[in-house]
Design a protein around this nucleic acid. Structure first.
Length: 477
RNA sequence: CUGGGUGUGGCGCAGUUGGUAGCGCGCUACCUUGGGGUGGUAGAGGUCGCACGUUCAAGUCGUGUCACUCAGACCA
């Protein structure tokens, strides 16, 4: 009977990409639309995003940020003001050329990111050191005309948040960049139960126009890396390009220092590929639209549904709970909620009611426990925490198993061939040519220079010259 | 953008040498159902991705086109 359930989706070991697509569709997260690369976020998928938003928004506000909303159109001349920035984004920009049937005098870009809009606005409103810092964030969608698309991982329009801040000093802006990276990292490791590596991008991999780009990198179940969030330090480059100035305490005109940071619906792809299994999605309790689902057993029997409703009302005070009283067999429902990744399932039938107990089943390991109804709230909270802990440890174990320390490119090739894709830790001399060469020889690209450095050897994995830093390498999504 | 794969009821598929579309699941109604997709009876639902062409006749052959999907390159 167990075989019948897994037949619903492609096995992840057999074809990970197909498994991923099956989950997106069958867990009812998304549907495709008639525009290539533009996906429909269905209620269940959007609810995950709303939960992510709720948690992050609170963290942003508690660190002093305010939400704003910028227009979705950027005049071409504005986009062109910072040359590295425009070079980075121009190839994937969508353009509006007409208003009704009239051609526009200047075409408008649909925002791929909003640095230019924020800069234009900052230039208008910042006059004095008293106006600093500016700590802004916006929740919106952006458009990047990608060639090939995948649900959550690469779509032409995607939802995100972008923080944009202005500071009087270099040090304060760097501190902001680091602070926000840590907000993202904590969110991933605690709420999403996804272990991440914090680090800095190599110069060739920086955001277009940034002085430094920090990022967090996660390892997916199949051994490929996913950049989960980024935080950029801009120095005063944008401020100079957009003529943002203020008068400082000494009555001198100065340029402020700037940051931006963002994360996207891609995180949902990360959740799927980190925690999912052959029975479907596994959601971290913090963002699960339904944290606990109540399945009545023999629900037509006297008293069962009444008891189930009573439990639902009790649990609703502390949890996101759902009672499924549809006319389907319990087994059918078990399979459905496993597909949808509900962290904890509560089974309640006549025998349980007689014994003043119920069954709690944790999604990630299908462990069943009988608990007394007297302290159900505590038991549910404990089970949810067990899921969070369990999936984090499972993800961490996968990452550790797939982290290889290599001294030469041959060692990298051998490690990947023997154990499959994963994180490679190897030394680097700092030359872009070596970065490219490693990718060409082994297939793995540089992901970041981790803050937690190790000394794998004294020489560059590629050229053999003295090494400057340890770099994390991987095949990336 | 490059290279593969796939387009046939809602979903998954079959359809032979061209001859006028079929199966499973799902859906609707009723019955049945105690712990992992319960079983039964009856029913609804399709101009075969789109366009042009060949032919007496096209789901089937040809050309084009679009979409989805996978693998690269690029990106969050």
């Amino acid at each position: 009977m167990a075989e019948k359930m897994v037949a619903a989706i492609t096995s992840m070991d057999e074809d990970f990409a197909q498994w991923y697509t099956d989950i997106c569709k069958k867990a009812e997260l998304i549907d495709y639309s008639s525009v290539k690369g533009c996906m429909i976020l269905r209620p269940y998928g959007y609810a995950i995003w709303e939960n992510i938003q709720g948690i992050l928004d609170a963290k942003f506000k508690s660190t002093g940020h305010e939400n704003v909303y910028m227009p979705m159109f950027i005049p071409e001349s504005l986009l062109n003001k910072e040359k590295d920035h425009v070079a980075g984004f121009a190839p994937e920009v969508a353009w509006v050329t007409h208003g009704g049937s009239e051609p526009l005098t200047e075409r408008l870009c649909v925002r791929p990111t909003s640095e230019t809009l924020f800069c234009e606005h900052f230039a208008n409103v910042v006059k004095s050191y008293r106006d600093l810092p500016k700590l802004y964030n916006q929740w919106c969608s952006v458009v990047r005309w990608e060639k090939t698309t995948r649900p959550f991982l690469r779509s032409r329009e995607f939802l995100w948040q972008e923080g944009h801040t202005l500071h009087a000093t270099y040090e304060e802006a760097v501190a902001e960049t680091e602070q926000m990276l840590n907000v993202y990292a904590d969110f991933h490791e605690h709420e999403l139960a996804i272990p991440v590596v914090r680090g800095k991008k190599t110069p060739s991999d920086k955001f277009a126009g940034a002085e430094d780009t920090y990022c967090i990198e996660a390892l997916m179940h199949d051994g490929k890396a996913l950049q989960a969030a980024t935080s950029h330090f801009f120095g005063d480059g944008f401020a100079k390009a957009f003529d943002i100035t203020y008068t400082d305490k000494n009555n001198k005109v100065a340029h402020p220092f700037q940051t931006s940071w963002g994360c996207t619906t891609r995180m949902i792809g990360g959740i799927i590929m980190t925690h999912g299994d052959n029975n479907g999605l596994v959601l971290p309790p913090a963002v699960a639209p339904t944290q606990i689902v109540i399945i009545p057993v023999a629900q037509h029997k006297e008293g069962v549904l009444d008891k189930a409703r009573e439990l639902r009302d009790r649990l609703a005070k502390n949890f996101r709970v759902k009672l499924d009283d549809r006319d389907q067999s319990p087994g059918w429902k078990y399979a459905e909620y496993e597909m949808k990744g509900v962290p904890v399932r509560l089974e309640i039938g006549p025998r349980d009611i007689e014994g003043n107990q119920c069954v709690l089943v944790t999604r990630h390991n299908r462990e069943k426990v009988f608990v007394s109804l007297d302290n159900l709230e505590e038991a549910v909270a404990e089970r949810l925490e067990a899921v969070r802990q369990g999936i984090y440890e499972k993800a961490l174990a996968n990452r550790e198993k797939r982290t290889y320390r290599c001294k030469t490119t041959d060692e990298i090739k051998e490690a990947l061939a023997r154990n499959g894709d994963g994180f490679v830790k190897a030394m680097w001399c700092g030359e872009e040519a070596c970065e490219d060469k490693v990718k060409e020889l082994t297939g793995v690209g540089s992901r970041c220079i981790p803050f937690d450095q190790e000394t794998i050897s004294d020489t560059c994995v590629c050229c053999g010259k003295p090494a400057k830093t340890m770099v994390l390498w991987a095949v990336a999504y």
